[in-house]
Design a binder for these strands. Structure first.
Ligand SMILES: [Zn+2]
Ligand SMILES: [Zn+2]
Ligand SMILES: [Zn+2]
Ligand SMILES: [Zn+2]
Lengths: 144, 144
DNA sequence: CAGGTAATGTTATACAGTAACATCCGCGAT
DNA sequence: ATCGCGGATGTTACTGTATAACATTACCTG
């Protein structure tokens, strides 16, 4: 899916949730798309400042939060960063592998794992918030 | 396992790794033990300052890092916090459920899940760093 | 146009984590 | 005993991450 189609799909997703892919949000989404892996909020902030002059932290955090809320981005807690989700249209349960060395990201289907997970948490009466699961480690190119 | 036995086991674990459960580390470990769920570094710092006078961030982060490195604590990235591990003696693969509402924590055995996980990541040539997996969500007492 | 709602701008501050260097302490070798 | 070493802690100062609170703007609707 190229960038144009991706952004159109993002627009549809926003509309389906009663919102809009505003200029700012589109700009932030494009910036994150421009990175191969994990991006940090303050990196996006710096890019924004370069591209459009003034910008402050709340501006970028609000856009990132919105995009993550509806699944266009995933937050990677372990790295204080964000990654683009390329599968938000097919409602998926994604297993995300984020490499700590190179910042690269891979997103897998892992239905069996999630099924096993949800059985286990249900037994404890626990409802996980995130529908995606992020593991950090070393990718195949960065093995020690 | 009561606190006394727990601390003795922690001492053994440190010794087995060529280190020591120093006074500071023991004090930090006891402080974290005193909380029912997730504790944040700056909370421990405040407690330390109350108990022993001066203390600065590096003091508490060094102790927390050490304790987490050998498994006495687990770090919970999603909450910028730490929890006590009550099973560090049996080398375990723990699934940790952290409630975002009440801060409560539950640690389960989830061998089936981890087996499924490791098969999936191995297929991608990916080696996860953490041997424990933390999910955030709502515990059975805090369902919406 | 008036009034409401969502989005963005702005300022200031809170919270989290680390670098760099100084000091201290326990222990083995001379 | 004391010198020197390495691990642990103290101290200062800083960088990075995130949010509160309030002002302003854009846009839709009646
Ligand atoms: Zn995804
Ligand atoms: Zn890598
Ligand atoms: Zn554990
Ligand atoms: Zn709860």
């Amino acid at each position: 899916m190229d960038t144009q189609h991706y952004l159109q799909a993002a627009e549809r997703l926003c509309a389906a949730n009663g919102g809009k892919l505003t200029e700012l949000r589109r700009q932030v989404l494009e910036l994150v798309l421009g990175y191969p892996g994990v991006v940090k909020a303050y990196q996006v902030l710096a890019d924004l400042q370069r591209d459009r002059g003034a910008a402050a932290p709340p501006t970028v955090y609000r856009a990132l939060d919105y995009l993550a809320q509806y699944g266009m981005l995933h937050r990677v807690d372990a790295l204080n960063g964000y990654i683009v989700c390329h599968h938000f249209e097919c409602s998926h349960q994604a297993l995300i592998l984020a490499c700590e060395q190179c910042g690269g990201v891979e997103e897998l289907d892992a239905d069996a794992t999630f099924q096993s997970l949800s059985q286990t948490t249900a037994r404890a009466g626990f409802v996980p918030r995130a529908q995606s699961l992020v593991l950090t480690g070393s990718c195949k190119h960065c093995q020690p």
